[in-house]
C-alpha cells in the first residue's frame, strides 16, 4: 500500500540526498573534466574522464607529505590522548583522594574553553617552547582532553566494584589492573574517544595554520588551503583534482569504518 504521505516522505529525503551528494559528485566530475567543457553549461554533469588534471595537481604540491603529516599527527595525538585520559580516569575512579572532586571539576572546566579564545597565549607558549613549525606543537596541546577523561570516568564507574576487590586479593597492582582488567572492559568507550580525538585532530585548521609555515610538517587541510590561495589562475579542473586527492583517503576509510564512526559520533554527540 503506497500512501501519498509516504511518497512525499521519500521525495523529501531523496531531494535532500541529491543536494547532499551533488557537491561531492561535482568535485570528482570536475576533476576528470577537460577545462573547456567544465566552463560551459552544464559543466561536468557527466565528465570526459580526463585524468591529466590529477597529474598536474599531483606535481604542484607534496600531497603525500601533507597526507602522512595529517595521519601521523592524528594517530599520535589519539594514542597520547587515550593514554593520558585512561590514566587520569583511573586515578579519579580507583584512587580517589580528597582532591579528586576538585581535580575532576578542573578537567571538566577545560571542556568549556573555546579554543579560539586562547589562541594568542597558546601561540606564545608554543613559540617560547621553540615548537613553532614542528609536529610537537600540533600534538601536545591536544594530547589530553577533558571530554575523553569525562567519557572514560563515566564508563569506569559503570564497571562492577567487585573487579577491583578481586584483583586486590589476587595481589594485582594498580598498573596491572588498569592494563589487564579495566582496559579490555572499556573497548567501546575507548573506540568512541579515539574516533572523537582523531576527528578533532584531523579537522584542526586554525592551529596548524598559525603554528606552521612550511609543507614539511603541515597537515593536508592547511596544505590544500595554501595551494588554493597561491594557485591564482590555476584551472578549476586542477583545483578540483587537488581537492579530490585530499578527499579520497577519507572516503575509503569512511567506506570501511562508516558504522563505527556513525555510532561513536551519535554516542559522543560532540565535535570540535
Amino acid at each position: 500500500m503506497v500512501r501519498p504521505g509516504k511518497i512525499m516522505v521519500y521525495a523529501f529525503l531523496i531531494i535532500v540526498l541529491v543536494v547532499t551528494l551533488f557537491p561531492i559528485w561535482w568535485i570528482f566530475s570536475t576533476s576528470v573534466e577537460t577545462a573547456s567543457r567544465a566552463y560551459a553549461f552544464p559543466g561536468a554533469l557527466w565528465p570526459n574522464w580526463t585524468w591529466s588534471n590529477y597529474r598536474t595537481a599531483w606535481e604542484l604540491a607534496p600531497w603525500m607529505r601533507f597526507l602522512l603529516n595529517s595521519v601521523g599527527i592524528g594517530l599520535v595525538t589519539t594514542a597520547l590522548a587515550l593514554l593520558t585520559s585512561l590514566l587520569a580516569a583511573y586515578g579519579l575512579v580507583y584512587l580517589p583522594t580528597r582532591f579528586s572532586a576538585i581535580i575532576f571539576t578542573v578537567i571538566l572546566a577545560t571542556m568549556m574553553v573555546p579554543f579560539y579564545s586562547i589562541i594568542v597565549p597558546d601561540y606564545l607558549i608554543v613559540r617560547d617552547l621553540g615548537w613553532l613549525n614542528t609536529y610537537t606543537a600540533q600534538v601536545v596541546p591536544f594530547a589530553a582532553n577533558g571530554f575523553a577523561v569525562f567519557m572514560l570516568v563515566q564508563f569506569m564507574r559503570g564497571l562492577p566494584i567487585e573487579l577491583r576487590d578481586a584483583a586486590r586479593i589476587d595481589g594485582i597492582t594498580d598498573w596491572g589492573f588498569l592494563w589487564r582488567i579495566v582496559m579490555p572492559n572499556l573497548k567501546p568507550a575507548m573506540a568512541t574517544v579515539s574516533i572523537y580525538v582523531f576527528l578533532l585532530s584531523w579537522n584542526a585548521f586554525l592551529w596548524p595554520l598559525i603554528v606552521t609555515n612550511g609543507p614539511t610538517v603541515q597537515p593536508i587541510q592547511v596544505g590544500l588551503a595554501n595551494f588554493l590561495s597561491t594557485a591564482n589562475g590555476t584551472d578549476w579542473t586542477v583545483l578540483s583534482a587537488a581537492a579530490a586527492i585530499t578527499t579520497i583517503p577519507v572516503l575509503i576509510l569512511y567506506a570501511f569504518a562508516q558504522r563505527q564512526v556513525v555510532e561513536s559520533v551519535s554516542r559522543s554527540g560532540i565535535k570540535g
Binding site: 590514566l87 586515578g91 578537567i107 577545560t110 596541546p141 594530547a143 589530553a144
Partner: peptide, 14 residues
C-alpha cells in the same frame, strides 16, 4: 596517574 593530563590541560587550556 593524573599528572600527564593535568599538565597538558593546565598549560594549554586553563
Amino acid at each position: 596517574y593524573l599528572l600527564p593530563a593535568l599538565i597538558i590541560l593546565l598549560t594549554f587550556w586553563l
